[in-house]
Design a protein around this nucleic acid. Structure first.
Lengths: 220, 220
DNA sequence: TATTATTTTTAGATTAATCTAATAATATTT
DNA sequence: AAATATTATTAGATTAATCTAAAAATAATA
């Protein structure tokens, strides 16, 4: 595994995420969109990543991440999520504040540092948004999870993740009292607009919109 | 304070250190040496730093760090040393392993992160090598310190810092049992070669070379 | 299917940071 | 002080990453 530049790592991450963990092909424009850059820059970078066999790229046909590219991407994701745990657990950040800082920390190169950080944090399996943390070999297990919007009436669940990590969304969840680990029960559903009434931790009645219900993931 | 690139921050740090905290002028070659780069690259960077008023640069006359340059340098140094404390205190690194990793971490941009890290560490005043950590305003106080080599016969001291932070030197100190906070007493001195015999923590007799004695700093 | 629209790539510039080789300024030494 | 050595700067390339504008390929639609 050669040492990659920050830009290369960021592109690999984007390809990995947009391809749904390397399953699908990804389009140039989708990457440009995700990375807030221009399609021309993406084409250029894909050509270079392809020369290093980090992606499989056929002009005009989209791009797929290679095995070695996936490996690299997963290590960056591992670092990102471990740092997020550190920021929330140890430095008392809120879950909506950690993404940007972790975007920087994820590029620090030191395998020993990450090993020690992982130990220090007690080998966490999930980050503050419920996303799984890959191990040293890139292995991880997603928690079984469905959007609140799809839970049946009177169904119970435990909040295990959020689909969107937009700070405004996370702050809103904080405000209304939804957090990772909260117990939920669907007590009413409005078919007209997809909004619903839920009971949190058997004591707080909440009215939430369809958008919220689609982005809060629970397990049962 | 504008946002600086990694390279700019590294040059400012080098100028600051080589000038003895901004006191003296620094030569182009000295900087090239310190940074393992070529004089031509240094000239170029000095011109650019000068345009941003981070250094005062007159061609062929050496360079001095400006007030705003000093401020930036001290913030980078603050971050470097706080991360070093974190690595040693929390992640159980040895004092000879932390410099390289801190060289990367010092460039992470987030004032809040550093504020929280500082709190988490209990507002440390010194790093693992005994060097003072500047506060948010760049203020710091050096511990009064003299090399063991200059302590009088039978004089006592407490190890407060090391002059050299070369890993091999630090590992050697570990091996012979010298560490920050160790109590020392000079029990013999060989005028011929500057070597000396010392008593550490009132129980371990050690024979050390002139080189060691010059690079271990004590207070009394 | 031919035309139009969209998407993607290439061509050509730009910026930061670096390098080597050549030149210029300063310092040292006969 | 003139010659020589040292040190520092400029000129000109190079590389990574980006951009705009133009060209090429693919997709959508009349």
């Amino acid at each position: 595994m050669k040492k990659l530049s920050f830009a290369e790592e960021n592109y690999l991450k984007a390809v990995y995420h947009l391809s749904n963990a390397g399953e699908n092909d990804v389009s140039t424009n989708a990457i440009a969109d995700e990375m807030q850059t221009k399609a021309a820059s993406v084409s250029d970078m894909l050509r270079r990543l392809s020369e290093k066999d980090l992606v499989i790229y056929k002009k005009y046909q989209g791009v797929k991440i290679s095995e070695s590219g996936k490996k690299s991407a997963l290590q960056v994701i591992r670092k990102h999520r471990l740092w997020e745990v550190f920021l929330v657990e140890k430095l008392k950040f809120n879950w909506d504040q950690v993404h940007e800082i972790a975007e920087q920390l994820e590029h620090i190169k030191s395998p020993l540092l990450i090993k020690r950080l992982d130990e220090f944090l007690g080998h966490p399996k999930y980050d503050p948004h419920g996303d799984p943390i890959p191990d040293e070999n890139g292995e991880f297990k997603e928690k079984p999870q469905i959007p609140l919007a799809e839970v049946a009436l009177n169904g119970n669940g435990i909040v295990v993740a959020v689909k969107d990590t937009n700070p405004l969304f996370l702050q809103h969840l904080d405000k209304i009292g939804i957090y990772l680990g909260a117990k939920t029960k669907i007590i009413d559903r409005v078919e007209f607009d997809g909004s619903m009434e839920i009971l949190v931790d058997s004591k707080n009645k909440l009215f939430i919109s369809k958008e919220i219900a689609q982005n809060v993931l629970v397990t049962n």
